[in-house]
Simulated assay, not measured.
Amino acid sequence: MSQFPHIKLPLQNKLTFTANPVNVVPLPDGEILMNFASQPLITKLNANLEIVWEKIIQGKNTNYVSSKLSASSDGRLMAIAGMTDMRILDAEGTKVLHTVEHSSWGWFLGAACYFSRDNKTIWFVLPGEENETDTLQVMDAATFEVIAAYPLLESQQYTYGFHATPDNDIILLEAAAGEDKSIQMQLQLTDGAIVLTELTQCDDAIMGNFSPSGKECVMAPHYDGPLTIYSFPEIARVAAQEQEAIFDGSKDFPAAEPDNINYSVFFVDDNNILVVSQFGRLLLLDRKDLRCKAEVRPEGIEFTAYNLDGNPTTNPDYIFDYSSNIINVMIVHDKLLLTTGEGELRSYGLPV
């Protein structure tokens, strides 16, 4: 008998690419934008994951490194943040409207741009020179004039991520230094100046998302800490659950290495939270007690057991851990989207 009841999700749509998708950006009318790990390409998909158009990214494509893609909520503008520049393009990706050149980010560092909810401003981070800080800047989305700036953290140490909140005037900024630490900050633009508040109560927590009610957000542990729930707008810790209690031994996946949270947690609705595990499992937690109520099993997702040397094994005495073919998990347009190791983008209904 399985450790948890299973919720089977039938596949709705699937699209296979020649390179792994790295950014999936929502657009109006259920459409999405994507870019890829090893190709200077942007692809627009409709709500059924059918290709609307594909465009080669204009600009510097020599020795291409995947850029960070974002778009305005009205679909009028998109932004491409690369290693040495940031570009604002029109909705069709054919015209570069503005470019900001900067010194090169280190590998895996930098930040996607963020379009404010009202689409009036664009927020982005520039790398600092040696012995300086990275810099947060805010640009007018109509004139592309920089209207505010703020010094951040020591240069070339962090990957940054912007997160919208239920309050249109408040943004969260996350700074992650690999496996070392994660820092959460609250941003506001007040009287033309950036107001930054470091959320020390969220140290080493990784942002998930907000509940549909907007009253809470869920965060994953950076390493071995608990899953945590914070109230909004207070950002006060109101609930937590240790990982051992969530997995309770991983009885369905016996291994030398225990399963744990793999940085990703999401409110599905106000009463249910989805956890992505290190083994590639999707566990559904009850918000009331933060205990697992079911394991979500999307169609077409498979697991492989590995031994200590990282080789596949079927011998239960030598299983060190497991891995599924899931790469990334997202909730976009009220759908569960998965990218896989086969270069696929898969869509499913939500598990509740």
Rank of each mutant, 00 (worst) to 15 (best):
S70V: 00
E31W: 05
P258Q: 07
L153W: 09
D309Y: 08
T159P: 10
L136I: 09
D248K: 11
L187V: 12
T200E: 14
N131H: 15
P254W: 05
F210K: 00
L152N: 00
S277K: 05
I235H: 06
V25W: 01
G161V: 09
Y263L: 11
Q241N: 07
I319N: 00
M34Y: 00
D248T: 08
L41N: 13
L41R: 14
S66K: 09
G178E: 02
L97G: 09
I206R: 07
A47C: 11
W105M: 06
P26V: 07
P258G: 07
L49K: 03
K293W: 10
I261R: 03
F162W: 07
L41A: 14
I319H: 07
Y114F: 06
Q186C: 14
M34R: 04
L15Y: 11
A239W: 04
I80A: 02
Y230W: 00
A256G: 15
L126H: 07
D74C: 00
Q278C: 12
H102V: 06
G75A: 13
V24I: 15
W53Q: 00
T313D: 08
N307I: 03
N272D: 12
P351R: 02
I194L: 10
C217M: 13
S116Y: 01
Q58G: 13
A245L: 15
I319A: 04
I88P: 00
D309E: 14
